[in-house]
Amino acid sequence: MIRDITIGQYYPADSILHRLDPRVKLSGTLIYIVCLFLVKNLWGYLIAALCLGAIIRLSKVPFGFIVRGLKTIIILLLFTVAFNLFLTSGTPIFEWKFIRITKEGVSLAFSMAVRLILLILGSSLMTFTTTPNQLTDGMESLLGPLKKLHVPVHEIAMMMSIALRFIPILLEETDKIMKAQQARGADFETGGIIKRAKAMVPILVPLFISAFRRAGDLAMAMEARCYRGGEGRTKMKPLKYHKPDGIAWVAIVCFIALTVVSRRF
């Protein structure tokens, strides 16, 4: 079902990871992603996977719930694997008519797939453990220095948080509209690609209308509370580093070191 799309959602639980400062989680995720691209061999992936596994355990978010997020990128994943598998040149290990699989292709397809999976799992873990509010607070604070260059950091952060907040709402709305049209005999499951595309109209039109209505309502509600952008705005709960955050930073540095070392094997 449409509710299986879990990317960008928050998963409430009481864990060390949930309590961590969002700045640590944001920078940690970014570093993790960069490291994934620095990885050269199996050892590196093993380290990344083990670290991720440990963090998932710490987060208390059920593994099945995280994996479900992968369903949405399965097509992308298959394409990546297929492209790399069949279109990489090198020493052939398998040949049949026009299909040719090379040794380089296999290793490239494998590493791309692993990289993509680890990337999605890692970044969705961040949104699972961080509320949209914390996420934007963290981002605003990390990007703070850019304000000197007149980058509208607060506004960007606010836009992001609203977008994140709207994802589950719109999913729920889609679910409801789909059911309502199904109750009127609409059929989304059978037929060719054109018929299916046409069947989307009764979902998309009401969805857009409701998204605009919600956006209008939200803007009105924000204005009614005198929202006028980031200028001079203070926080009710300013971000503060605590002891676990320091420990997390040490762990992140260790991870970087391990990844760099793994490149030498």
């Binding site: 059911k179 109750a183 005999g185 009401p206 209308i209 409701s210």
Partner: peptide, 20 residues
């Protein structure tokens, strides 16, 4: 099930949100 849905007509809450 498709036949059932036509025999049991369901009007959702705020059905006006499904007009298109």
């Amino acid at each position: 099930l498709k036949d059932l849905r036509t025999k049991v007509g369901l009007v959702f809450q705020y059905p006006e949100h499904q007009l298109f």
